[in-house]
């Protein structure tokens, strides 16, 4: 092993293919998008170079600002509702006496199902006429409403399926993390008289920190990039209240033929994700140093 690592040629040989693929499929498209974002271009004809005008327009665009706020709101919901809920489920599932595998598989099912299918499923749940939700509300004597069609409920109604879908994903990662904690520690705590809730808060969660950090990163970056489910559920409407930056970008590129402007949004999303990833790493590292 050492011999291989000291051989520069071997290192090159192993690293080069990945580097090449990454360059061609990640770095080059980003650079090209960066160039497009400086053009006033419809995506078909000739573009004119306009410098950073797309970006200055972008920060003044109310529709874009709103979509950005939506995605940050969704990121907050993921971090403060979805992840704690996943953690709770993971702890519960790892503590059930029977059917542990069944529960972890059951919660994972929505992750496997295609987002488009989930979107149609929830559309039926939310449907104003015959939807499950309204039927349930009506049978309880409440008034039904058009959840995805009304501005005050559309955003939260579009977010819930997203949150719901990935609960199982984070639960699975956390569950695996919990399982890798040594039984000895837990048993020792139990002998010392710790209750299950004490074991969870004093032992499982602190030992799970590295895993939680992974989940936080994945969840945050995922939240900034959501597209598919919201596109199926509302398409960004009504009146753009459920729009997120990715949908804003898609609509500009393919519906309004603003290829340059859309590219500027894509560059913005990339920079935003990078910035958040670095921010998280700094926060986590500082925590580690404090310890």
């Amino acid at each position: 092993m050492e011999k291989i690592l000291s051989d520069k040629k071997a290192i090159f040989l192993f690293v080069f293919p990945t580097l090449l693929v990454l360059t061609i499929f990640v770095a080059v498209p980003i650079i090209i998008s960066g160039y497009y974002s400086l053009l006033d271009w419809d995506g078909l004809g000739k573009g004119t170079f306009i410098g950073i005008k797309n970006y200055t327009d972008l920060v003044k665009d109310e529709r874009f600002i709103n979509s950005l706020i939506n995605s940050i709101l969704y990121a907050a919901l993921s971090l403060f509702i979805q992840l704690p809920f996943s953690l709770l489920l993971a702890i519960l599932v790892s503590n059930v006496k029977r059917g542990e595998k069944f529960y972890s598989a059951a919660y994972f099912v929505p992750v496997i199902v295609s987002s488009v299918v989930i979107g149609y499923l929830w559309q039926k749940i939310y449907n104003g006429d015959y939807g499950l939700l309204n039927s349930a509300l009506r049978s309880l004597g409440f008034e039904g409403r058009d959840w995805l069609g009304q501005e005050n409920t559309a955003l939260i109604a579009a977010f819930i399926p997203n949150l719901w879908q990935y609960v199982g994903y984070h639960m699975l990662i956390m569950h695996a993390g919990i399982k890798s904690i040594s039984q000895d520690v837990i048993e020792a705590a139990r002998i010392d008289g710790a209750s299950p809730s004490m074991i969870a808060t004093r032992i499982t969660i602190p030992l799970l920190k590295p895993i939680l950090e992974v989940c936080v990163t994945l969840s945050l970056i995922g939240a900034l990039k959501i597209f598919d489910l919201i596109y199926v559920l509302t398409g960004g409407g009504p009146f753009y209240v459920t729009e997120v930056p990715t949908i804003f970008m898609y609509k500009h590129i393919f519906d309004a033929m603003h290829y340059g402007y859309g590219s500027a949004v894509s560059i913005f999303i990339i920079l935003e994700c990078l910035a958040f990833t670095f921010l998280l790493r700094i926060i986590f590292r500082r925590r580690e140093e404090d310890r």
Partner: peptide
């Protein structure tokens, strides 16, 4: 129009 026109 139908009440749910905005989501149809």
């Amino acid at each position: 129009f139908n009440d749910n026109m905005m989501s149809m």
